[in-house]
């Protein structure tokens, strides 16, 4: 009789709804794997984590697959929903995982203001450079010139360097890695989970199905090789932030600050107010 094989990370997953909806070669599985490893290595009880997600493939990483509280919200709004959650549950780790369309496109304003507010969220933006779930349309992070289903003659726009924007907006911690940087990304997530204030990780990820269909990158491996070739650590670049997937990908920690966290500030006001009333 064959022995049942149980993956060591299964205990963090809703395996009863497997297989996942992710396409072969997708980067979402890698990130889910790393995320559970990071939680496992830190010894965090999943009951302490509340995942909030939007609409799109990347949002499916924790919702529904991560066995914990998962609040699956509307397109672009997970950070705004998570703001309400964090204010009421500041003792929990509130994690937003969503895509570039969700967080840099339709919900870009919430990302900007949550960074400014420095609210204690861990935001993992899975940047697969296109709208994958809807079939590969151009996104705010698609490089210039790239053909997608809605830029059949090449993208006329320039991509946003979203990690740099978040760093400028005031987040306490900003880093960028790719799915090729398996170990570094896991360590980064671990560091992020223990950091106070607004924490942002951009993960450049692969989408062989949708982004690959008009760019010729047809397997996950094609992307990983490209990520390896183009990545350069932030310690070795003068222009610290600039990233363009067709040119170079600057990886590493972009910003680390120690500003007071937003909900903490609110709580202080309440404590003083209530004390003064007694």
């Amino acid at each position: 009789m064959m022995k049942e094989v149980i993956h060591p990370m299964d205990k963090y997953l809703r395996t009863e709804i497997f297989p996942t909806a992710f396409c072969p070669g997708c980067g979402c599985g890698t990130i889910l794997n790393l995320y559970t490893h990071a939680i496992d290595e830190l010894g965090i009880n999943p009951e302490e984590i509340i995942s909030v997600t939007g609409i799109g493939c990347s949002s499916w990483i924790p919702s529904p697959y991560f066995k914990g509280d998962t609040l699956h919200t509307t397109h672009g709004r997970p950070i705004a929903f998570a703001t309400g959650v964090k204010v009421m549950k500041p003792e929990k780790k509130v994690v937003v995982i969503a895509g570039d369309g969700d967080l840099a496109g339709i919900g870009g304003n919430h990302l900007l203001h949550a960074s400014r507010r420095n609210i204690g969220l861990v935001v993992i933006l899975v940047n697969n450079l296109n709208y994958g779930m809807t079939g590969g349309q151009v996104s705010p992070t698609t490089p210039c010139g790239i053909k997608t289903t809605t830029t059949p003659f090449g993208n006329s726009e320039y991509p946003i360097d979203i990690a740099s924007v978040v760093a400028a907006a005031g987040a306490n911690y900003v880093a960028r890695w790719t799915t090729f940087h398996f170990y570094q990304l896991k360590e980064c997530i671990k560091e992020a989970l223990n950091k106070k204030g607004f924490v942002f990780i951009e993960v450049i990820s692969q989408c062989p199905t949708s982004y690959g269909k008009m760019t010729g990158l047809r397997t996950g491996l094609d992307f990983l090789k490209k990520f390896e070739k183009l990545s350069i650590n932030i310690n070795y670049v003068k222009d610290r932030f600039f990233t363009d997937i067709e040119d170079k990908i600057v990886v590493g920690k972009i910003v680390e600050r120690e500003r007071e966290e937003f909900v903490n500030n609110l709580k202080k006001i309440n404590e003083e107010k209530i004390k003064s009333l007694q």
């Binding site: 509340i50 909030v52 609040l71 919200t73 509307t74 672009g76 709004r77 705004a80 929903f81 998570a82 703001t83 309400g84 959650v85 204010v87 009421m88 549950k89 304003n109 919430h110 900007l112 203001h113 609110l266």
Partner: peptide, 19 residues
């Protein structure tokens, strides 16, 4: 919490209620 727009406002309310 003063949000960045009304979409954010209703979103934060729903998140807070579930919390």
């Amino acid at each position: 919490v003063q949000m960045e727009d009304e979409i954010g406002s209703i979103s934060a309310v729903i998140g807070a209620v579930w919390a």
